[in-house]
Amino acid sequence: MRAATVLFSALSLLGLAQASCPEGTTVNCCIKLEGTTASTCAQPGATYCQEPGNSLLPVCCKSYSLTPRGYVGTECTKLSTGCY
Score class of each variant (00 low, 15 high):
P52K: 10
C29Q: 02
T74M: 08
T40E: 05
G45T: 03
T74E: 13
S39R: 06
K78W: 07
K62P: 01
T67H: 09
G82R: 14
V59E: 03
Y71I: 01
V6I: 15
P52D: 12
L13N: 10
V6E: 08
L13F: 12
A10H: 07
T37Q: 12
A3H: 09
L14V: 11
A17K: 09
E75C: 06
T77V: 14
K78P: 04
A42D: 08
Y71S: 02
C41R: 00
G35E: 07
S20N: 15
S63G: 12
V72K: 07
L79A: 05
P58Q: 12
A19V: 14
T37F: 06
G35I: 03
T67E: 14
C76G: 04
G35Y: 03
G73R: 00
V27N: 04
C29W: 01
V6D: 04
G73A: 07
A42F: 03
N54R: 15
P68C: 04
T40K: 03
L33K: 04
T36A: 15
T25L: 08
K78H: 09
G15L: 11
V6F: 11
P44Y: 00
T77K: 10
S20P: 03
T74R: 11
S39G: 06
G82V: 10
T77F: 04
A38E: 02
L11V: 10
A3V: 08
C76W: 00
V59M: 10
Q18K: 06
P52Y: 04
K62S: 14
G53V: 07
G73Y: 02
T26A: 05
N54K: 15
G82E: 10
S39T: 15
P22F: 08
E23L: 12
R69F: 11
L66S: 12
G35M: 05
A42H: 05
P22H: 09
V27F: 09
T25N: 06
A10I: 15
C41A: 03
L13A: 14
G24Y: 09
T77L: 13
T77A: 09
Q50R: 08
P22R: 08
R2K: 11
A3P: 00
A38L: 04
V72F: 01
S65I: 10
T36Y: 11
S20A: 15
S55R: 12
P22N: 11
C30K: 02
L33A: 07
Y71D: 00
S63R: 15
R2G: 11
Y64W: 15
G70M: 03
